[in-house]
Simulated scan of single mutants.
Amino acid sequence: MSAPAPTALPLARPAPAFRGRIGRDARSGHYAVPRRYRLHLSPSCPDCLRIAVTHSLLGLDEVLPVTLLPTVPDGPGGEHSALRPLYEASAHRYPGAAVAPVLSDDWSGRIVSTHAPDIMRDLVRRFGAGRPRLRPKGADAEIEGVRRLCAQGIDAAAQRAGRADADDEERGAALASLLRTLRSLDGRLAHQEHLLGDQLTAADVELWVSLVQLDTVHRWHLDAAAVHRVAGHPHLWAYARRLAARPAFGPHLDLDGIARRHHTHCRGLEAAGAAVQILDWAAHIPNGTATASC
């Protein structure tokens, strides 16, 4: 089944500073060697969460180490000061903020990529042999469609629906776009366990993280009626609960960290929806390994 066409809303993600790729062999420069590369991830960042889940699904702990960064960036512009040396080694006098996620090369001490979608593709394609098939043959276009749908139809639409500086018409249009996306996905999940059928794929990682953000971040700026309408998609939220209970998903949730990161950097106004939690995420996580939010 093809992904629904996304509503044309602008993406809020900054352009990646580095977009190197892991190749097949030595001719590519960056080629797949166990323990050559390192991931630098902040658990409260949605792109980092997507990468962390992918890394766990593939079982790459011994192949590609992870360095965890603080929940709340400690420098200007969302910068992690621990990443500054890597950025400056990779681009002389790098002028921007040293942000996560980062895939670095321990051999050269430089950055390979800061582009989350490319990083996730390379984890699967270059280190995923003999592991779960998160990108089945012929599914790339459909997975990319889901990624764009989540970024535009959920993330950007929810953000616009809660903007205090937008008028009622703008917020209403964004909420309608969000609800259309959720309704379409809910209908699909009424008849199958995962987005692309019976097999879990990279598309499920994309959607699950967007649902986490929708409930733990975006609902703080929606009114209570809007949150109740968002919650009224039973198959979608049951799916989110099922994935949260899997060891590769739920244990990566830092609910307290997500809340602190959001309240540190957000300048929007809190709305009545902040009091209407959709899921009790901590209750569905194996062994209670997530940190409960405030």
Rank of each mutant, 00 (worst) to 15 (best):
L200N: 02
L200C: 04
L200D: 03
L200S: 02
T201P: 10
A202L: 14
A203G: 06
A203N: 05
D204L: 09
V205H: 09
V205Y: 08
E206T: 02
W208C: 06
W208P: 07
W208A: 04
V209I: 11
V209G: 15
V209Q: 15
S210F: 08
V212F: 14
Q213G: 13
Q213W: 13
Q213E: 12
Q213H: 06
Q213K: 05
D215E: 13
T216F: 07
V217E: 08
V217D: 08
V217F: 08
R219E: 00
W220N: 04
W220H: 09
H221R: 09
H221K: 07
L222W: 02
L222C: 06
D223N: 12
D223T: 12
D223E: 10
A224L: 09
A226W: 07
V227T: 03
V227I: 09
V230P: 06
V230H: 06
V230Y: 06
G232R: 15
G232N: 12
G232V: 06
H233D: 09
P234M: 03
H235A: 00
L236D: 09
L236A: 11
L236M: 12
W237D: 03
W237L: 14
A238V: 05
Y239E: 02
Y239L: 02
Y239I: 04
Y239M: 04
Y239T: 11
A240P: 13
A240T: 11
A240N: 05
R241E: 06
R241Q: 07
R242P: 10
R242G: 08
R242N: 09
L243I: 05
A244I: 01
A245V: 07
A245L: 12
R246G: 13
R246L: 15
P247V: 15
P247H: 14
P247S: 13
A248P: 00
G250Q: 00
H252E: 15
H252K: 13
H252G: 10
H252L: 13
L253I: 15
L253S: 13
D254N: 00
L255S: 01
D256T: 10
G257M: 04
G257F: 05
G257Q: 00
I258K: 06
A259M: 12
A259W: 14
A259P: 03
A259E: 15
A259Y: 14
R260K: 08
R261I: 02
H262G: 09
H263N: 03
H263V: 01
H263D: 01
T264A: 15
H265M: 13
H265N: 03
C266M: 11
R267P: 03
R267I: 10
R267G: 09
R267K: 06
G268V: 05
G268N: 06
G268K: 08
G268W: 05
L269V: 12
L269D: 12
A271Y: 04
A271M: 03
A271K: 05
A272Y: 07
G273A: 11
G273S: 08
G273C: 10
A274P: 00
A274N: 02
A274H: 04
A274V: 00
A275Q: 10
Q277N: 10
Q277I: 07
L279N: 09
L279T: 08
L279E: 10
D280K: 02
W281D: 11
A282K: 08
A283Y: 01
H284S: 15
H284W: 14
H284N: 12
I285N: 01
I285L: 01
I285W: 00
P286Y: 11
P286V: 12
P286K: 14
N287Y: 04
N287K: 07
G288M: 02
G288S: 08
G288W: 08
